[in-house]
Design a protein around this nucleic acid. Structure first.
Lengths: 199, 199
DNA sequence: TGATCTCGTCAACACCTGTTGACCTAAATC
DNA sequence: GATTTAGGTCAACAGGTGTTGACGAGATCA
């Protein structure tokens, strides 16, 4: 293979690797997504992707961080929190490479779990708790678990009922679950979530 | 190593392997739990555990099935469904090797996913839907996703807030989420769930 | 022109995986 | 007593993994 002219297509190979990693990690788990696959996507040698990022773990960490920047809404939806969260999880047709996808695929990986735990806490639970003036993060964590659970059952497990259900129905179910929980836990906070029942 | 007296400790090695597999698969994912580890737990050669079950996939399937028989409550709690489900997920102190543990650790595994999808459908969603006289399985699937999500965040991800929270609080949050959802979706069914608000 | 540094390749290492075939041994069967 | 059969071991295969060191081509800069 000819060594390829550099200044043309080879600029920013690191970014292209990062992008390929995001895609791969959002389709397969940490262990199932191999460095060789990522390298092949970019058309580069495995050794290079390794040396670009130091280790697979660091590449994963960077991919996770980078995917969060793409994914603006994940850090905290603006208004009508319950409905907005529900809509975010459900309407994911052309979504790919967003933080949530990476998270739900590697939750069970021993290597990735510590990273993901901190990420979910720092990028979702804490900001949302602050946004809602809620000092107790437990309900927020349960919301996160609900959203992750539905995403997993839908996109990873590909469970029939959740795949075929109309988006509106699914959205309403999730939103009402969140509302039902927050309402009972703390009516004041629930009011902040702009409750309008969607039956 | 002396070939060991058979009739004593070696009876039912297959069952011991199955038991070890259940334990391993409930602590690590399908790919992370290796046949060699399982074999070592029993004190047997890898080749034997393989030939006992035909393949790793079949061993996993049998372990999953066997774990469900241990786990009576998983197939359908009797009364006060919402609270019962919540309590089941939360109070899992000395629980190990039950179906839910195996499920939440291998959800993202390409090999195990089809098995798990069918298992959750057959052993949880459908029975519970029937028990509640609910023809629409979508809300039930969302409940399953919620329970799985919380279990994952707690036991796999080991997320702080969900680990340290008092069981009663967590239980109430989950139960109210389920009630809030079912109540809005179908008040008649919700009544079946013996709603008593736990604030 | 020559030294240097970045970008990148190549080949290999060490390790771990599920799986297979040959083999051995104790118990049951004839 | 001889033979089959079940229970089990051993060594190896084929393939995949992250990781490493040696090396090379182009551009940069002195």
């Amino acid at each position: 293979m000819p060594p390829k002219a550099r200044s043309q297509s080879m600029v920013g190979s690191r970014d292209r690797i990062l992008k390929a990693a995001i895609t791969r990690f959002s389709k397969r788990s940490y262990e199932q997504a191999s460095l060789r696959d990522i390298a092949a996507d970019v058309g580069v040698d495995v050794a290079y992707v390794h040396r670009c990022f130091g280790s697979k773990e660091r590449l994963f960490a960077e991919a996770l961080k980078a995917s969060a920047q793409i994914d603006e809404r994940f850090t905290g939806p603006a208004d009508g929190v319950a409905g907005s969260l529900a809509r975010y999880v459900v309407s994911e047709r052309p979504r790919r490479g967003h933080a949530l996808d990476i998270i739900i695929r590697s939750l069970a990986s021993g290597k990735a779990a510590p990273l993901l735990r901190r990420f979910v806490l720092d990028s979702f639970v804490d900001p949302l708790a602050e946004e809602l003036d809620q000092s107790n993060t437990v309900p927020i964590a349960v919301i996160a678990a609900l959203l992750a659970g539905v995403s997993i059952f839908r996109n990873v497990l590909r469970m029939g009922p959740l795949l075929n259900a109309p988006s509106a129905e699914l959205e309403a179910l999730i939103a009402n679950a969140i509302r039902g929980m927050m309402d009972a836990a703390d009516p004041a906070t629930a009011a902040t979530m702009k409750l309008e029942r969607t039956p």
